[in-house]
Simulated assay, not measured.
Amino acid sequence: MRGLDRWNKGRTFLQLLLELREQDGAATSISMRQVKAMLSDILVGGTDTTSTMVEWVMAELMQHPEAMRKVNEELTEVVGLDSLVEESHFPKLHYLDAVIKETFRLHPALPFLVPRCPSQSSTVGGYYIPKGCMVWLNVWVIHRDPKIWENPLEFQPERFLNESSNLDYSGNNFNYIPFGSGRRICAGLPLAEKTLMYILASLLHSFEWKLPHGTELEFSDNFGIVTKKLNPTVAVPTPRLSNFELYTK
């Protein structure tokens, strides 16, 4: 889009979209409906899904103290209690990465992904799929299929530490596709992966998290385009860094 070369530090993304809308008749112009659709996609796809997955990961870790202990030990070893989490630490946080991937398996943010619409009729797996119909992929069921996963309902991050498992976010293994696969894989995958890791690593490294006294976790969900916890998780943080000045940075 040629309008993008007009970008500079003084413009916000919304301002750029509105400028493109004002170009009546221009090849790069877009309608107000397209502006709203794009902003809605960014909000739901980039913000709502990330905050939802942060809550699911935190809930699973508080439900499984041994996994929480391993995450804390890894963060202490890699980052240190006198430093803050940086992007350079991410490649060394193997167990936290496995925890996030296992949470995506049990609680995919979009259980049916984004619907597909085939441009031509075809037969897939013995099923006839007519042109123009809407196709939904039930990732939630795929990720819990006992024919594919051992103990599919159990939270076991270690299953993602096996180097031969070939389980990542690329979508090349159709048994695990939380972000989709192929040409229609989530366009925000690189940003989402780093953002989620940074938020969770920072929260878990800076604080110890416990449930309020007398409360218990439950994992009922609220079905929707984005599957959230039915009842929000409430946790009490306790500082764990060695220097309180780090919390002001």
Rank of each mutant, 00 (worst) to 15 (best):
G3I: 10
D5H: 15
R6C: 14
W7Y: 13
K9G: 12
L14A: 12
L18A: 11
M32L: 12
K36R: 08
I42H: 01
I42A: 07
L43Q: 04
L43Y: 13
T47P: 01
D48C: 05
T52A: 00
M53G: 04
V54S: 00
E55Y: 11
M58N: 10
E60I: 05
V71H: 01
N72K: 11
E86N: 12
H89R: 02
K92I: 07
L93F: 13
L96I: 03
K101G: 00
T103M: 05
R105M: 06
A109H: 06
V114L: 15
S122D: 13
G125I: 12
K131R: 05
K131N: 05
G132T: 08
G132V: 08
W136R: 03
I142K: 02
P146G: 09
S170L: 12
N173H: 13
N175Q: 14
S181A: 15
G182T: 03
I185N: 02
C186E: 01
L189D: 05
L196G: 03
A201M: 05
L204T: 07
S206F: 13
P212Q: 11
E216D: 10
L217P: 02
L217G: 00
D221S: 06
I225R: 01
V226A: 06
L230H: 03
V234H: 04
V234N: 03
T238C: 11
P239S: 14
L246N: 04
T248A: 05
